[in-house]
Amino acid sequence: MRRTPAKLADGREIVYFDEGGAAREPAPDTRDLPPSATGSEMRWDPLLREWVVVASHRQGRTHLPSSDDCPLCPSVGGRATEIPAASYDVVAFENRFPSLVPDHGRELEDVGELEPSRRVGAGRCEVLVFGSDHRASFADLSPERARTVMEAWVDRTLALSALPGVEQVYCFENRGPEIGVTLHHPHGQIYALPFVTPRTLRTLDSAEEYRARTGGDLFADVLRAEQEAGSRVVARTEHWTAFVPAAARWPVEVHLYPHRAVPDLPSLTGAERDDFGLLYLDVLGRFDALYDAPLPYISAWHQAPVRDPRRGLARLRLELFSVRRAPGKLKYLAGTESGMGVFINDVAPETTARRLREVAQ
């Protein structure tokens, strides 16, 4: 794989990940672009003890354009896009409409909170494009391309973790307008966050309590229990197991755990990276076969915090879930889920796992 960094017209970084061949000579971005937005801020919720990001400039971001106006397609035929190249394999670039922005010393005034907490939403948001085919999805990728995407995740995790003030790197993909996708072109995103996310903190608390109570590794024991039970295992390879968790919140939910406990993507061996792609493509194929239609989903990598002293308690894993509960029916977050955070799953996890095993291609 060849890695080629370059700059876009407004100074944002772009990195090409090519699968061999001659070294890339980046084409110049000829667009006349205004400076990137810098209006992001963070506010502290004293009741939930969580940060909330306010990024009002994102209201004007590109929303479900036609394929002729897609900003992630190659720049061809005189139409300049976010990727100034006639062809590419995998590309990462700084988001033009970021939720988090570099902190250039901008000062924020108190707005009358209980305790002043406003801070610049300092961080970085990148877009990771999986290929130039506008009509494809991750499930359509070859194992070689899936491995290239994995190497891009690793590269960006290392680069963003090294930035000052970054506490966690989050790689994810949203697919389908039902999830809230605003661009159809196959892509994911990577957030370099200035804080450790609430879910990560809560799982670290759980792992710490479990270690003190039992002396064991919570994530290793969850994986072992699922493997021994077997009823919720969807597929298994030499280095990974995909299973529906016993307490799944979503009608279709699968977690992918590496058999070896590692904190983050860069810690995976070459064999583990290869093996992941094969299993992930298999699981995505099962997702689309479940209702004989592309399944909307969120695919979320959980990596250890960059600097948290409890980093050693964390474990890399991928959580994949869909809001589709039946053909033509979506699960909406109703009063219990949205109001109180109490999930009610209409489908038994064992049933979901059995269905996903049965639709193996």
Rank of each mutant, 00 (worst) to 15 (best):
S137V: 00
A37Y: 08
H302C: 05
F243S: 15
P177N: 11
E126H: 10
T351M: 11
S267D: 03
W153P: 13
V54Y: 01
I179K: 07
T81K: 04
F195R: 03
G77C: 09
R147H: 05
A139V: 15
E350C: 10
P198F: 02
T241F: 06
R106F: 02
F243K: 08
P143L: 09
G112C: 11
P35M: 06
S132L: 00
L284I: 01
S56Y: 13
G21F: 09
A225H: 07
E253F: 11
R135D: 15
E173S: 09
P98E: 09
E113F: 07
S56G: 02
I83W: 15
V283C: 05
R310G: 10
V54S: 10
P294L: 03
S75C: 04
L48I: 07
V111W: 05
M1G: 06
T336I: 08
R224C: 01
E126Y: 02
T241V: 10
V111S: 06
L290G: 06
G230R: 13
V283N: 03
P251N: 12
R49W: 13
D155M: 04
Y191F: 10
E13V: 12
L158K: 13
M340P: 00
L201A: 11
A192I: 14
L356T: 03
A334P: 01
L281R: 12
